[in-house]
């Protein structure tokens, strides 16, 4: 379970990115977060990833207070969270296989486990034939599928997808959303931020709407309403 308890984030220039946000996300949920640019969606995710510290409030993952983790504990926590971004964030000098294997290596997995799991995950996202390609040789949709493969290979508890379809055409968007749904069906919590109304409406899952750093709607089977 993830709990945001009265999280406020004020940047040094006085901008209030999050304003007393309180929300609970249950295990195995698929939650979409929608809102205009600057509504606070990305800051919300950064709080969960411990990339930024809140000005006040706490974020709990299970019983752990995320922002009270020591520096050397943070990378252990991040291994429980898979991340997918709009700009893919792949390692440019590693092949598709190596990008996915990297996530397993840093988690301290053995070589034989890596040799077994990586091809399996690549098959799941339909990229087995591109295993030896570098990110620059892939299309946008393929890059995003590599990012998903990397995010799920350690079987994390949560997948955070920050506008994963922002740079993709409708066909690739559909594919990526189907993969995320499949991951959620297998029992992983998925938190998705997006501007894509069609995606939200087709999902029929919980939608949290944000505006000016506050949660303005929280519908259990919502639609894209702003």
């Amino acid at each position: 379970m993830i709990v945001f308890d009265k999280i406020t984030k004020v940047y040094p220039d006085g901008e209030v990115a999050l304003n007393e946000v309180t929300v609970t996300i249950e295990p195995k949920e698929f939650v979409s977060i929608v809102g205009h640019s600057g509504a606070g969606k990305t800051t919300f995710l950064k709080m969960l990833l411990a990339e930024e510290k809140p000005t006040s409030g706490d974020v709990f993952f299970e019983s752990i207070s995320v922002h009270k983790l020591k520096k050397h504990e943070i990378h252990h926590f991040r291994r429980k969270v898979g991340t997918v971004f709009q700009d893919f964030r792949l390692l440019p000098n590693k092949t598709v296989y190596e990008n996915v294997a990297f996530a397993m290596e840093v988690a301290g997995r053995h070589d034989d486990e890596i040799a077994l799991d990586v091809p399996h995950v690549l098959e799941l996202v339909n990229l087995s034939k591109k295993a030896l390609s570098f990110p620059r040789e892939l299309s946008g949709g393929e890059k995003q599928r590599v990012a998903i493969a990397r995010a799920i290979v350690n079987q994390p508890d949560i997948i955070i997808a920050d506008e994963p379809t922002g740079n993709l055409d409708p066909i690739n968007t559909h594919e990526i959303i189907q993969i995320l749904k499949k991951i959620n069906d297998l029992g992983t919590t998925v938190i998705l931020t997006t501007h894509n109304k069609g995606v939200i409406d087709s999902l029929g899952k919980r939608v949290i709407s944000m505006d000016s750093g506050k949660i303005v709607r929280d519908d259990p089977t919502g639609r894209y309403v702003l």
Binding site: L49, E51, H72, H75, H76, R78, R79, T83, R89, L90, L91, P92, N93, F102, A103, E105, V106, A107, R150, N154
Partner: peptide, 16 residues
Amino acid sequence: KDEIAVMRLVGASSKY
């Protein structure tokens, strides 16, 4: 720099 940020996000330790 961006690569380092990605490695951190994936959960790599500083030494790694």
